[in-house]
Design a protein around this nucleic acid. Structure first.
Lengths: 331, 331
DNA sequence: GTCGAAAATGAGAACGTTCTCATTTTCAGC
DNA sequence: GCTGAAAATGAGAACGTTCTCATTTTCGAC
């Protein structure tokens, strides 16, 4: 039903090759031809068919962003919003369109959807299965990992420096005079969870502070859960005076719990979060937190992917963007 | 480089037609053939090429979700997260993949990207340009509008009942005893802005309350901006005791401003928000707000789109999902 | 073992582009 | 007006599937 290049060719009297050129590389076509062709195209309401084009060029100009966070609704995760935004911008700038998916969705009967759909490249965010990645790469589809690290030949990974972020956060609490510092650790991908814990733990070691088991807890990174856990902890006798939380949602829950128990933040209880997500400034007092330059991560991942797509080697395989403590009201 | 259907056919001794069938409709192929074909496919690392398929079927199984909110970063908008999530789920369930884009990105040199890329259908969220929509429809691409309403032949629109939400919010403030109620109105798409204002205004009229110009303000729906505006208003002599805010971000900013000025919420100043977005429960006290069943909106939009794609008429063109006041701590 | 219907397979033309290679046209320089 | 190089155009084979229409095979019933 819609007009094809042949209809246009017939209408304007040029060959389909010339019509094709008029759209794909206008400068190779005489001005006269261009005008006539565009006129016909407009008349016939012709739009080039990118599918047919992709078929012969073997390039779809599409990339996919696949998020998989353990136990966490993918898109809802505010942490990924600015990353996604950056990837989108960077992609658009170079003519790519963006598919998004949450991991569990992708696996169909045979082979991965985005393999079949011939993505030019794929970014895996969060948890990622080694086998899937290898499947993509065996089809020559470039892959970049984001917020996760896997040792695979030539596989670029974009991470934030979670370790030093955690170090900064914990040190900050120490410097504020706290000697007993609890940890509320969300369950994220192994890499992230480990790095943040290690940062925290290394500071405890450095200053000879105790790791107090009952006040170091794993939990789902959700507001209610964090509030519940924190409420319980604060009712224990002899609880810490400060808590390092491995993301802002948890920190927000913790602050809420403290306030509700009539404790003052930061005077009685200090809290530091992680991510500097949009919610960090919504709570009152505003969260002291560790900023991750998410936009930069997104850009980096995208541009690395484009390098691979264009056949350039990634300049670096392990890219770690720095994190930065931002001190606000909760400490 | 990657294996094609022909390679598989050659390897297993069947024709490409049969191999094609083995993947597209396995039940039409003998068990023997299926096994041999799958074995060859596996051996050759064959993955069906959805682009070639799309070309002949004239169906890509892709849909696009295009967000355009005035002055507001698209994906960052927490309002759209659950909607997107629902659209994604619903789409995946039926074998569609999802493109996302922010409006300003889409327009390339000639024709819209997603027309060229042969979307099976498109959802426009927020502000949407009549001309663009007509362009899509002229190419027989089904379109559904979300959170916006345009009178166009056969164009389904999914809206929330912003009007009655605003009515409920304002009435609630009235019933709490407030007689002077300000309005902090974010700049969204015209439809939404108007509907929410009208709901507010109709309640004022109903109870004979004054519309006090200085306390009815338009603003960008951002935290800082809202805090700034609210701080100013609260320093005016004789300010209202309650404010209806047209989204939660604004409400959060308003609450923050009040608290910082040493006012008690809700005793001195009551605030109600809109959307019941994720942040509404993060602030303390938690926001009284108007819940929009965003998931339902997403589902509705997606399913309507699939109906159109499958050639079924939309059952209804104007779909309004109900809103519901949820009373929490700020009133 | 034969018949006939049903099931399974194959041949080959689409689908709408791009791209290579050849051919034609244009045009500057004389 | 001729020459030759450069610019513009055209013919037609790909690209990897699906699908229609034969043709072949299978198999139950007699």
């Amino acid at each position: 039903m819609p007009a094809t290049i042949i209809d246009v060719a017939r209408d304007c009297g040029y060959s389909k090759a010339t019509v094709s050129r008029a759209f794909a590389s206008p400068e190779t076509v005489s001005e006269r031809a261009r005008e006539r062709i565009y006129a016909s195209a407009k008349k016939l309401n012709y739009a080039p068919n990118a599918i047919a084009r992709a078929m012969v060029r073997r390039r779809t100009e599409n990339i996919a962003f696949i998020i998989h966070e353990k136990q966490y609704p993918a898109i809802l995760n505010p942490f990924y919003s600015p990353i996604l935004e950056a990837v989108m911008q960077e992609g658009t700038r170079r003519g790519y369109s963006l598919f998004i998916a949450a991991r569990q969705d992708m696996r169909l009967s045979n082979g991965d959807v985005y393999i079949k759909k011939q993505m030019d490249g794929v970014i895996f965010a969060g948890e990622a299965d080694r086998r899937i990645i290898e499947e993509y790469r065996s089809q020559n589809i470039p892959v970049v990992l984001l917020n996760n690290h896997l040792e695979l030949e030539g596989l670029p990974c974009v991470m934030a420096d979670h370790f030093h972020g955690a170090v900064a956060a914990t040190t900050h609490l120490y410097e504020r005079g706290h000697r007993r510092i609890g940890l509320l650790a969300g369950r994220f991908s192994q890499q992230v969870t480990d790095a943040r814990f290690n940062g925290y733990f290394s500071v405890l070691c450095q200053y000879g502070l105790p790791l107090e088991r009952p006040f170091v807890v794993d939990l789902d990174p959700e507001l209610d859960e964090a509030e519940r856990v924190m409420t319980r902890l604060l009712q224990l006798p002899d609880h810490p005076t400060a808590f390092f939380c491995t993301n802002d949602t948890i920190a927000a829950g913790a602050v809420k719990a403290a306030l509700r128990l009539g404790l003052r933040v930061p005077e009685d209880i200090a809290v530091v979060g992680f991510d500097d997500s949009s919610l960090s400034r919504v709570v009152e007092p505003e969260l002291t937190t560790v900023r991750i330059d998410a936009e930069r991560m997104g850009r980096l991942a995208a541009n690395t992917l484009f390098d691979l797509i264009d056949g350039r080697e990634a300049e670096e395989l392990f890219m770690e963007v720095p994190t930065e403590l931002v001190v606000r009201g909760t400490t």
